[in-house]
Design a binder for these strands. Structure first.
Lengths: 344, 344
DNA sequence: TTGAAAGCGCTAACAA
DNA sequence: TTGTTAGCGCTTTCAA
């Protein structure tokens, strides 16, 4: 077997007895009646018979389109992102696009470098899930005129976004805890440089007020990681008697579990805990984690559809998308203990 | 501001006062003394001053190289793969390549479809971490002459591979359990269609023999998931009195924890458990999981380096790579209980 | 060492 | 409706 030598549009044209340009047109589904039905049929048949697949490189050079979307996530190792990527990948591929995925490791500088690499690859658009509140690289990208959709995290820039309505689920979580008899709820929040941190904290305060509960202590985890969550939760527990905690996300909740263990606090008997995300392993934690579920895959899919629309026509007025969240009640929440919980 | 109109090699050539071909040569680091130092310097300066970045599309069309590698993983949602991807991504980018990542969802047919998509994109080579023992799509890919490196999972095909030496860590795990006084060790293995399942089971049996322990029961989980692990472990626990279990991987171990809980079995007091992988959350499980650590990121990086070498010269005789594994002792293993454990 | 020319595969503009 | 022509940006002959 010699080198196969990939088929070109010329081969198809020859087989169908037409000019290459005609063959190209016949294979373009966007051209409605521009080619006679008979010719189209002949070309399509020939292409199928030969197994012709268009060469994306030649096409790109000509059309200035790469059918490629750059995707920036902050941390591949955070279980929140794989489902998001799954949604993005599937939806993009359904529209004939490929994703170039890059993980910034929560490093603003690296984000800039990766964006340069992706720009070098001539992506048609970008999905940015790594934005921080002040994010020069993303601002620059948007100002440069590239189609951009922000996912999950916002930054002060005029780009459409796909986010989850965290307030909805957080309200449900607070009401759930109140109904269980908790009178004070603490919050282990995340780093302030990320927009969702503020969104969630604000939603938490509003929900507590609406539920006529007394606002509990709020401590800040330096990162959305289990280690940072454990540390923050530890200071919380050592400082105040707490019966209920809303964690900034599920990874922080994982850290809270560890902090409980170290202090001999039983969850949910002594303290109830609610996370945010419903990451893949949340239901397998012990106790299984009650959490505000974010539709991670749908978030990704919606963002992908948006960027494809925007690439097709950058002038489109696409609306911001906000997907509802729901409270998933599992084993980490229980009625408030009668006696005071063990305190330092 | 009008459309920026990306710079081309012509712009650089004009700025440097040379012919585009000369500019191209000057910017190619592979050409040693083919261009005078003075000219090279002038061109490099001009390119830097203008901020020229080569257009990969034009280059690809000319060179028939896309600087792109297709990466197939079986399941993005399995925590084993994100670290692997991280290693792959970083190492590929360090060599100027981009990864096109696709998740097969453990579906052989989908694997074939995705490979077709990636082939359509003219990838220079492929990293396959999704191979099953009989895998026509991958066999076809290799026979077609594409550079392929198998990662983690093997299939009976003549392609270089990067795997972990699981036997090493499994031996350490069995010895660890023996030293804790366990006399019988059970094994919850994975689905037989994947090569690592057999590798690990074989290594387990050999290690048990070498440690002069009696071979314990082996039950099979239908998938490498927590749900399948819970089910398999449940039948194991209901059938036999067990004090020590080696799980086929960490996800199965997570399922074992759940099975313990349902039966009021305490880990590690009643039963010791060892996983395989050391996935990101393993140390945060409670008890934190004793596990055979696979260097996931290094596995990915090594595979990436191999495929880059192979793309550079397909005739290279690249050796199979096997990376050592180590036992990470944490909280899920403890001395064997004196009395018989609670049994059905 | 450098320049000239050609062409990778494709499709948009123009002509017929 | 179809054919002709041209050229996207690059690099690799070949010639000087």
């Amino acid at each position: 077997m010699t080198a196969p030598g990939r088929l070109t549009i010329k081969d198809v044209a020859r087989a169908a007895g037409v000019h290459p340009a005609t063959a190209s047109r016949a294979l373009d589904p966007r051209l409605p009646g521009r080619i006679s039905a008979a010719t189209t049929e002949r070309v399509v048949r020939a292409a199928a018979a030969l197994g012709y697949v268009v060469d994306p490189v030649g096409r790109s050079l000509r059309t200035k389109r790469s059918a490629t979307v750059g995707v920036l996530v902050p941390d591949l190792l955070n279980p929140f992102y794989p489902p998001l990527l799954r949604g993005i990948e599937r939806a993009l591929r359904a529209s004939g696009f490929e994703a170039l995925i890059a993980s910034t490791d929560n490093d603003v500088q690296r984000e800039g470098e990766l964006l340069d690499v992706l720009k070098g690859r001539r992506c048609d658009g970008y999905l940015v899930a790594s934005a921080t509140r002040r994010d020069p690289a993303v601002h620059h990208l948007v100002r440069g005129g590239s189609p951009v959709v922000l996912v999950n995290r916002l930054t002060g820039v005029a780009a459409p976004s796909v986010t989850s309505d965290d307030a909805l689920g957080i309200r449900a979580a607070v009401e759930h805890l109140r109904d269980l008899g908790h009178t004070t709820i603490a919050h282990v929040t995340g780093p302030p440089r990320i927009s969702v941190t503020a969104t969630r904290e604000k939603a938490f305060r509003a929900a507590v007020r609406a539920a006529r509960l007394s606002p509990g202590p709020v401590v800040r985890a330096a990162e959305y990681t289990a280690a940072a969550g454990e540390k923050a939760c530890g200071t919380l527990l050592d400082r105040s008697a707490v019966t209920a905690i809303l964690a900034g996300n599920d990874m922080i909740a994982v850290g809270c579990y560890a902090a409980f263990d170290k202090r001999g606090i039983a969850c949910p008997r002594d303290v109830s805990l609610v996370g945010i995300n419903d990451m893949p392993l949340a239901e397998w934690l012990r106790p299984s984690l009650t959490t505000v579920a974010i539709p991670q895959e749908e978030l990704g899919a919606a963002a992908a559809r948006l960027i494809v629309t925007l690439i097709g026509d950058p002038a489109t007025e696409v609306p911001d998308v906000s997907l509802p969240t729901t409270l998933v009640v599992r084993g980490s929440t229980a009625p408030a203990p009668r006696a005071a919980p063990p305190s330092a």
